[in-house]
């Protein structure tokens, strides 16, 4: 599983970070780091919850290369 980060859409709600601070890292302003996130298998549920919690829909879940 991969999380595609649409950095332009991030507005710093930090709801993903609240779900999983290790997976969704923030910069000093509280906005997500721009790189896509490769999710270890054991963290897939946390990643899914984090991506789903984004009010701006800035995080897209990709499974086997598909959304």
């Amino acid at each position: 599983m991969r999380i595609r980060v649409i950095r332009d859409k991030c507005q710093g709600h930090a709801r993903c970070w609240a779900q999983s601070p290790a997976l969704f890292e923030l910069d000093d302003e509280g906005y997500i780091l721009p790189a896509d996130i490769v999710v270890p298998v054991e963290q897939e549920r946390a990643a899914w919850l984090g991506a789903k919690s984004c009010p701006e829909r800035a995080l897209v879940i990709e499974q086997d290369g598909k959304e």
């Binding site: 507005q11 509280g30 919690s53 984004c54 009010p55």
Partner: peptide
């Protein structure tokens, strides 16, 4: 409730600065 992406603090660039 999970997946609770409510808009109490707005959407977009003017998202409430004090939300946290």
């Amino acid at each position: 409730r999970e997946n609770n992406r409510h808009v109490a603090f707005a959407y977009g660039p003017h998202r409430c600065l004090g939300s946290h």
